[in-house]
């Protein structure tokens, strides 16, 4: 029943993109996202497209993995495309119907926004497809480190995320068990109106919640007995290596950012 929930979409591999430092990947994605929305000029959109194609090609992740997450996104992309198509009233009129008039500006704007969203989704899924959740948390913790100076509990945040990731499969397993136990008592999760089905899940969620609290307490005792005292004075087992490939990736994205700024504001 819950089999179709994919936890962490990571696809194992050894491609150049897989081996990039998660910090590099995160910064690159951030730059890409910001400057993609600055880009209007065909040149900078072209560069963005090139980068996406390059990353996509290097990552070597089968297309089906992208498509799996795309169905919902596709609706949004089509919707925004249509919205821009009908709402923009610029440029020469292409054709007129009794209901709407389509302008050339509308088509261009629609395509632009559509392409932007598509590239964004591709790059974002590329990150989760090629990086293990553990590496991602490590990368985030490391990037958030400067914020520690202003009192942000960076270690605690990263640690919380990593514990949550560790327990998702365990909790799913438990949810399955409870669902089966409730089904054995006559609960019905697959019939009736949506409201009825949602209500049928209450007897699953309550024991799951209680169990999670018990687990949390056990875990706290186990952690304490293993000497956990927060982030102070802690050493790290996993460390991240910044390699030449990471610098290259960063340089490429910086060049793209400059192109985007230049074509948008200076041309």
């Amino acid at each position: 029943m819950l089999d179709h929930i994919i936890i962490g979409q990571y696809v194992p591999g050894h491609s150049k993109v897989h081996r990039l430092d998660p910090r590099a990947k995160l910064i690159c994605l951030m730059l890409f996202m910001v400057f993609l929305f600055v880009s209007r000029h065909p040149l900078s959109i072209g560069v963005a497209l090139l980068i996406a194609v390059l990353a996509f090609g290097l990552a070597n992740v089968p297309l089906t993995f992208y498509l799996r997450g795309m169905r919902f996104i596709a609706i949004i992309i089509i919707f925004t495309f249509l919205l821009h198509l009908f709402m923009t009233k610029e440029g020469p009129v292409l054709f007129t119907t009794p209901i709407v008039t389509i302008y050339l500006g509308g088509v261009l704007e629609g395509v632009l926004v559509g392409v932007r969203l598509l590239l964004l989704v591709i790059m974002a899924s590329l990150l989760t497809l090629t990086t293990t959740p553990v590496d991602l948390t490590d990368g985030m913790e490391s990037l958030m480190l400067p914020l520690k100076k202003v009192g942000m509990p960076t270690h605690e945040l990263a640690f919380m995320i990593s514990i949550a990731l560790r327990f998702i499969p365990t909790l799913l397993e438990e949810a399955m068990k409870i669902i089966k136990a409730q089904m054995a008592r006559g609960a019905n999760f697959t019939q009736g109106s949506i409201w009825k089905r949602v209500k049928a899940f209450v007897p699953v969620l309550v024991p799951l919640f209680v169990q999670s609290l018990n687990r949390a307490e056990d875990l706290a005792i186990a952690m304490e007995s293993r000497g956990y005292e927060g982030g102070e004075g802690r050493t790290k087992f996993r460390i991240l290596y910044w390699k030449r490939m990471d610098t290259i990736a960063l340089v490429i994205l910086t060049l793209y950012s400059m192109t985007a700024i230049f074509t948008r504001f200076l041309m």
Partner: peptide, 26 residues
């Protein structure tokens, strides 16, 4: 309960957890 005392996402990370806490050099 074996499920409630493993903290880290992989086996080697979990074995290292106690050592990390006590500040053992890498």
């Amino acid at each position: 309960n074996p499920d409630n005392q493993l903290v880290a996402p992989t086996v080697e990370d979990d074995v290292a957890f106690g050592l990390e806490n006590t500040g053992v050099p890498r």
